[in-house]
């Protein structure tokens, strides 16, 4: 207990600018050293909060502000270590600024950072053109033949990424370097929130080589667009795609949204 008290006292005796530097620098080092890497955008966000927290702590009390400022004022007869510490901390500011400037201006080969969209926005003019077959729009008409065919197609084409249990845990799910995993259809945040035309659009449009930045292939060849392509674009017919979609809803117990 005494050791703890002595330790606390020693911490309190650390000059507050050094304490601030240790908290900010320590947090930055911790975030930078974390593996897998934390994206730069998130580190910037976190460091903003940490810096604000440190500023709040220092300025909550007039006495603390005075002690912080006094550290930067040379005192007669002060220990040499304190003088060195002061100049050392003051040197940190231009060093950090220079490192930042260097990092921002050095030539790089990495593609620009992309913002990922979980459910890309698509205009009504696109979705309105997708005709939902009468049998697909009505869950009462999803008979065993449709569902078993949908399962066969799903297991053969989709389960490798999305998993046999439709939970996004397929054997290939770990193999992609994309910002998001294959969709977990059992989660209430995916197909349960979407309409049938949207799910069909997503399945048939895919994500390869377009702005959606996902590994989802394009499964159905479109007669209207030859823009994006994938090795799987002729693997499913429109009818088969609808059977897969119907199976997804039936197996997860969700109902497609109608509006």
């Amino acid at each position: 207990m005494r050791a703890l008290a002595a330790w606390c006292r020693r911490i309190r005796e650390i000059p507050s600018p050094l304490g601030a530097f240790l908290v900010i620098g320590g947090m930055f080092a911790l975030l930078k050293l974390t593996r897998p890497v934390i994206p730069h955008s998130v580190i910037l966000l976190y460091m903003g909060f940490v810096t604000v927290g440190v500023l709040i702590h220092i300025t909550l009390d007039d006495e603390r502000i005075r002690r912080f400022n006094d550290f930067f004022v040379p005192q007669l007869g002060e220990p040499l270590a304190r003088t060195r510490l002061r100049w050392g901390l003051l040197a940190v500011i231009p060093i950090v600024a220079a490192a930042w400037a260097y990092d921002a201006t050095r030539p790089g080969y990495a593609p620009p950072v992309e913002i990922f969209q979980r459910h890309p926005t698509v205009g009504a003019e696109v979705l309105d053109r997708i005709e939902v077959p009468v049998w697909a729009a009505d869950p009462a008409k999803w008979d065993d033949a449709i569902l078993s065919d949908g399962k066969r197609l799903y297991d053969g084409n989709c389960a490798v990424c999305h998993g046999e249990k439709l939970d996004g845990q397929g054997p290939a799910a770990e193999g992609f370097r994309y910002p998001i995993r294959p969709a977990d259809f059992t989660d209430a945040g995916t197909i349960a929130q979407l309409t049938l035309p949207y799910v069909y659009w997503r399945l048939t449009t895919g994500g390869i080589q377009n702005q959606f930045n996902s590994a989802m292939p394009r499964w159905v060849a479109s007669t209207e667009s030859s823009g994006a392509s994938s090795a799987h674009m002729y693997d499913l017919s429109a009818e088969e795609a609808w059977r897969v979609i119907v199976y997804l809803y039936n197996a997860t117990g969700f109902e497609p949204r109608t509006n």
Partner: peptide, 21 residues
């Protein structure tokens, strides 16, 4: 303020969600 899916470069992508973030 932690985003579920982050603005990350290809170098920073971790193959799915970051285990902590």
């Amino acid at each position: 303020a932690t985003p579920h899916t982050m603005a990350a470069s290809i170098e920073e992508s971790t193959g799915g969600f970051h285990p902590i973030l």
